[in-house]
Amino acid sequence: MPSETPQAEVGPTGCPHRSGPHSAKGSLEKGSPEDKEAKEPLWIRPDAPSRCTWQLGRPASESPHHHTAPAKSPKILPDILKKIGDTPMVRINKIGKKFGLKCELLAKCEFFNAGGSVKDRISLRMIEDAERDGTLKPGDTIIEPTSGNTGIGLALAAAVRGYRCIIVMPEKMSSEKVDVLRALGAEIVRTPTNARFDSPESHVGVAWRLKNEIPNSHILDQYRNASNPLAHYDTTADEILQQCDGKLDMLVASVGTGGTITGIARKLKEKCPGCRIIGVDPEGSILAEPEELNQTEQTTYEVEGIGYDFIPTVLDRTVVDKWFKSNDEEAFTFARMLIAQEGLLCGGSAGSTVAVAVKAAQELQEGQRCVVILPDSVRNYMTKFLSDRWMLQKGFLKEEDLTEKKPWWWHLRVQELGLSAPLTVLPTITCGHTIEILREKGFDQAPVVDEAGVILGMVTLGNMLSSLLAGKVQPSDQVGKVIYKQFKQIRLTDTLGRLSHILEMDHFALVV
C-alpha cells in the first residue's frame, strides 16, 4: 500500500459497493488471473465517493441489488447463522422517566444476534452475496479491517462455511474481542490505534497488504460494500417497522461504517417519512454534520465500534436529520445504567446512543415513540467499562463513588512517597548505550525526554532486548525507535489509591 493515498477510480455505471474482489474501477472485475494482476490496485480507499443510485421515491424494481426479506425461524435451526436477525424490541421503562421523557422509549437489542452484535447481519450478508456472485469459493481466505464486531461476525460465518479468516484490528480494541476471535479460529493482526486510516500501518493498510500477498484472499470491505446497508434496509428496518406496527417518530443510532443508519433510515424514509433520524458520533470522530460539531482538541476516545477519521463510502449522511456528539463518560455511564436499571447487557456504544436519545427525544410528546439501536453486548468489555477499576483509572468514576473498604494508605498523596527525580535518556542515544546505562543503574525503564525536557515516551529494558533479539533494531539504532509513546501519567497530588489502580493494569506510571 502506498504512503500517498491515490484516488480510487470510478467506473461508468453500476453501484460502487459490489461485493467481491475490487477492480481499479471499484466494481467486480472478471477475466484471467493475468488481467486481474495487471488491473487490481494495491488498495482502494474506504472513503471513495459513493456511486449508489438510491433515491427517495425511486421504484424498488430499479435497484441493481439482490434483495432479501426477513424469514421466520424454524423450530430447529440448521446452523447458528440462522440465529442472525429477528432481534427483540424491548421497552426501556426507567431511564426515559428518569430523564423526563414523555414518549415511549424502545430498544432494538442487536446483541441477541448469534455473534453478539449488529455486525453479524452485514457479515453474513457480505459472505452470502460474495458466494452468490462467485467471488468467494471453498478454501478462500477472508481478510477484514475491523474494530472487532464485524470480525467476530465474519469469523463466526467463516467457521460454519469453512473459510480461512484473518482479522486486522487496532490495538485499542478489547482483549475479549481478541479472545472470541481466536476461539472462532480467526487469525488476528493488531495495528497502532493512532495510525491514520490511509497510513500503511493502519488496520485498513495492513489488511490490503495481506490481501496482495495471500492468494485467493478477499477483503469484503464493510466500508464500501453495498451488502452492509442492504442488510439493514432489507431486514433490520423491516423488523423495526413490523415490531412497531409502522408507528415510530424517531430513530437514534450510533454511527461507525454508517451501514446501520443508512440502511434503516432509507427504508424508514420510504415507509415512515415523518420519522426523524438521529445520528450519534463520538467526540474525536469526524462523521457528524455540520462540520463545526467535529471541532475539538480530542483525537482519541475509548468507546469502541463507532466514529472514524474518514467518511466511509457506505455512509449516506443525507438521510440523517440531526447529529449529536457523545463523550466517553456519558457513554459508559449510560451503558452501566442500562445494565443495572433495565437488565440490558449492552456495550458502550449503546450507552452513547441512549445518552443522546434522552436529549433528542425531549421534543417528542406522549403517545409518540423513539427507537434506539443497541449494537453489541457487554461480553466484549468485561475488563473495560464493566470494571470499576478501569473506570477509575480512566477518570470516568471517582473514588467516592465506590463504597468498598480501602487499605490505610489509600488516600495518601503520591508526594508522600518522597520520590527522587528519575533517570532520563535522550532519544538520540543508541539502544546499546541505553541498555548499558539501565543495567549500570539497576533500572528496568526510563523516560525519554528531548533537550527541552519534554517527555516523549518510555523505554524499557525488556522491550529493547526483545527488539534486538527479533532483529527489529540494532544496538547502533537510536533509542527513539523503541519508545512507548502511550503511558499513564500521575500527579504528586493524586492518591496512592489512584496509582494502585493504574499499576494493576500497566507496568509503570510516570509522575509529573
Rank of each mutant, 00 (worst) to 15 (best):
D79Q: 10
T5C: 08
I122Y: 01
A24D: 14
C15M: 09
A155V: 06
H67D: 02
D35Q: 10
E187C: 11
T235R: 02
L184E: 02
R58Y: 11
P138K: 08
E34N: 02
A186T: 11
R121M: 03
P49Y: 03
T135D: 03
G205Q: 10
C109R: 06
P170W: 00
R276M: 10
C109W: 05
E187P: 09
S199F: 03
I127W: 05
R45M: 12
A265P: 07
W208A: 12
R182W: 07
S174T: 04
H66K: 04
V178P: 06
P21V: 05
G151E: 00
W54V: 06
A130G: 13
A195F: 03
I188Y: 05
A48W: 08
E128L: 11
I127P: 05
C272H: 10
P74T: 14
D35K: 05
P33C: 07
G134Q: 06
V160A: 11
P229N: 05
P41C: 12
D47Q: 06
P41H: 10
S19R: 04
G246D: 06
T193L: 10
K172G: 01
P192V: 07
K102F: 00
S61N: 03
T146H: 06
W43F: 15
N212V: 10
G96R: 15
L268N: 00
T68Q: 13
I214D: 05
P6V: 03
R125L: 07
L220D: 00
S199H: 09
P46I: 10
G162E: 03
D234T: 05
P41N: 09
Y233D: 00
C165F: 01
G116L: 06
T257L: 02
R161V: 09
W54A: 06
N212H: 04
S123I: 07
G57H: 08
R182I: 09
P200M: 15
P74S: 12
V160K: 04
L184A: 02
S147T: 03
P16R: 01
T68V: 12
A183K: 05
E176D: 08
R51A: 08
T87K: 06
K172P: 01
S174P: 02
W54R: 06
F112A: 04
T150H: 04
E110V: 01
A265T: 14
S61I: 06
E213T: 12
K98I: 12
Q242M: 13
D221A: 02
L42P: 09
P49G: 02
